Simulated assay, not measured.
Amino acid sequence: MVQPKYHVFICTSCRINGTQKGYCFQKGSVDIIQSFMQEIEDRDLTGDVVINNTGCFGICDKGPVVVVYPEGVWYGNVSEDDVERIVEEHFEGGVPVDDLMI
């Protein structure tokens, strides 16, 4: 069984019936997931970081929302431009990105 160092949940506004619509989806959260996956692959972190999409966290005004465990760090208003920084500073450096935290 894989024991990742980080487990990342990214809101894609996925509804119970499987459709994606809502604030985080409209703000590009699917593209953010793809950026995380590419960045993690490029940095050879696939064994250390697991990415999952999720439904609404209920704080749409802070979206797109990214939550990182085991620390329970919540990032808000995340854009594709923030992905490299989160991976470098948090996943590789071990220090959450303060100015992106909710």
Rank of each mutant, 00 (worst) to 15 (best):
V2P: 15
Q3G: 06
K5Q: 08
Y6K: 02
Y6W: 12
Y6C: 02
V8A: 10
F9W: 05
I10C: 06
C11H: 02
C11Y: 04
T12L: 09
S13Y: 06
C14D: 06
C14S: 08
R15G: 12
R15N: 13
R15H: 14
N17G: 10
G18E: 09
G18I: 02
G18Q: 04
G18R: 09
T19C: 15
K21C: 11
K21F: 15
K21Y: 12
K27M: 10
K27Y: 12
K27S: 15
G28P: 03
S29Y: 00
I32S: 02
I32W: 07
I32T: 03
I33Y: 09
Q34V: 11
Q34T: 14
Q34F: 12
S35T: 12
F36W: 09
F36M: 12
M37R: 15
Q38I: 06
Q38K: 15
E39M: 07
I40C: 11
E41G: 02
R43V: 14
D44C: 07
D44V: 12
G47A: 13
V49N: 06
N52V: 11
N52C: 12
N53V: 08
T54K: 00
G55W: 02
C56L: 05
C56A: 04
F57S: 10
G58H: 07
I59G: 07
C60K: 13
K62T: 06
G63S: 14
P64D: 08
V66F: 04
V66D: 01
V68S: 07
Y69N: 12
P70V: 11
E71K: 11
E71C: 04
E71A: 14
G72W: 00
G72E: 03
V73W: 07
W74Y: 02
Y75Q: 04
Y75T: 05
G76T: 14
G76V: 06
N77F: 09
V78G: 02
V78H: 02
S79Q: 13
D82F: 01
V83T: 10
V83G: 00
V83N: 01
V83Q: 02
E84T: 15
E84I: 11
E84P: 07
E84M: 07
R85F: 05
R85Y: 01
I86G: 03
I86H: 00
I86Q: 08
E88V: 09
E88N: 08
E89Q: 14
H90S: 07
G93H: 11
G93K: 07
G94A: 11
P96W: 08
P96Q: 06
V97C: 05
V97N: 01
D98Q: 13
D99V: 00
D99L: 01
